[in-house]
Design a protein around this nucleic acid. Structure first.
Lengths: 112, 112
DNA sequence: ATAGTGTGTAAGATGTTGCTTAAACACTTA
DNA sequence: TAAGTGTTTAAGCAACATCTTACACACTAT
């Protein structure tokens, strides 16, 4: 998870992931989408993504095709979802307590 | 989203988020959980998390209490979920094509 | 006021990241 | 073999992140 979240923290790498989400894309084609940075820079990002197991590589002749490897995101998604939804459900419960309190239907066990 | 993902890329900050997920925790109490790093280091992490709007702060007398602000994770969760599930559904479609081709009855869910 | 407790800020050392240019590798084609 | 294309690796550098120590701030209580 650590590698995945670190990899995903960079905006260029996130953009690359979007590019390779739905189809295989060659390194060169990826690099074309980032005219502002050099090819080696893109290559290094691809290496980082590969090391984080966020993309798969297929070598075909001269070229290398990259594609999203969604399983690599599983742990990171789970972590963030847990933080997000667990805490949201807490907020929801508080909201419900608020509502009961206002309608005179209090639940003492719920109070802190 | 950028700030949130960068903030969450650090393991210490992730651990802090877990600590403040379910309840308010004071800066001192948080720092106690990280004996290996100094108090100022923790304070700086808290600042980063606050700037990323991933936690809320409440000042009470001497102390400052931190708590998870789940809304701050919304965009990041959405991004990762989209990458994850969209791509998984692609895999599923490929699996279904495979299945039709082989007339087998395998269950792709196992590969998650 | 003064001292004590909880916390944050400043300054600086150190390691890491992301970029660039130059060179090398790998495969294709003449 | 030699030249051409696609891609990665190497080396070096500037920017940034994270840590530490020392100090400052804010509030509490003698």
């Amino acid at each position: 998870m650590d590698d995945a979240l670190r990899a995903v923290a960079d905006p260029t790498r996130r953009a690359i992931l979007v590019l390779v989400r739905d189809r295989e894309v060659s390194a060169g084609e990826i690099a074309e989408r980032f005219p502002e940075i050099s090819r080696p820079a893109v290559s290094q990002h691809l290496r980082t993504l590969t090391a984080a197991r966020l993309v798969d590589v297929r070598r075909a002749g001269n070229r290398r095709f990259y594609r999203l490897r969604p399983e690599g995101l599983a742990e990171a998604v789970t972590f963030l979802e847990t933080m997000w939804s667990t805490s949201l459900s807490r907020l929801q419960h508080e909201a419900e307590r608020e509502e009961r309190a206002h309608t005179g239907d209090q639940d003492m066990k719920g109070s802190l």
